[in-house]
Amino acid sequence: MMLLRQTVSRLVTTLITLFGVAVIVFVVIRVVPGNPIAMMLPPGASEADIERLKTLYGLDKSIFEQFIIWFSNVLHGDFGTSISTRQPVLSLVLDRLPATLELSIMALVMAVAIGGTLAVLGTRFRGRKTEAGIDVANGIGLSIPDFLWGLALILLFGVLWPVFQISGRVSPRLELPFTSQFYLFESLLRLRFDIMADLLSHMFMPALALALPLAAIISQLLKLSLKETVNLDYSVLARTKGYSETKVILSEALPNSILPTLTLVGVQFTFLIGGTVIIERLFSYEGLGNMAIDAVINRDLPLIQGIVILFAILFTFVNLAVDMTYAFLNPKLRHA
């Protein structure tokens, strides 16, 4: 009963949030200078032509009227038609979503792996040179933003020591036998490791660029929490039982230290997804972010709205997932 009420109230809050996002985006992209008609017509088009197109796309009506029309269509599952490509917004956006999801999740996995390893190592060798080195690495990771890491990685792995692909999501010469847009996931399912290697080679640098700042945050927070936990009574008791320091860190301290780190990682992960917009552009990765920038340049109003709404839904889901993981990991909440 309790759970049901929580879920319903959460759903209502989410819908209100999404509505607010829709209103703000709708108004802002219509108030800023520039309009899609100017991008579509050749220079020197007649006033009559411009008016005709405006009427065709409904841009002659007031913003309020436009919103009512758009919103009632959205409620019917119709996000409109992209002005620049003349395809339905929904299918355009859903086609690109898997690419961005795969990139973000890969970045998250890398961040957790790198950050987690550094935190455990730093705790194991606390007070020694290893920990000092890790602190310096964390500082560097935190103070350089993802797009600069992207440029640095291109220099390193694209120019000086060209081992990874710099641009795109997959090599164009490859035949893709896939039915979905989740290329990486599907290549794994179909055991097409040749395609998987190509995908990973393309994904490595953008994912790492997104992962490094988050890895630094995870490493720093988790290490702080671990260093506290390894001195608590149950950790000391485990040592008297004969466990090694590494084992105490991994099986006694780590499960209790993950919780405080998790909440922040959830928030930071939404920033990471936001970061895909610039990173995808930098690496010409065909995801949602790259499409968003094109849509803004072309003033493709319906497409921009669709992408922003989808990002908003994505963020809400990430927060929900974090809360659920939190409840799952914390026995006190699980039984309450």
């Binding site: 608590l232 009574d233 149950y234 000391v236 008791l237 485990a238 008297t240 039982k241 004969g242 466990y243 006694e252 499960p255 209790n256 990991l329 914390n330 026995p331 006190k332």
Partner: peptide
């Protein structure tokens, strides 16, 4: 670990909560 054991002071903090 094999020959000795500890009965700790505070039972509230000596068991791992997770």
């Amino acid at each position: 670990g094999a020959k000795a054991a500890l009965i700790p002071q505070d039972p509230l903090t000596a068991l791992n909560p997770s």
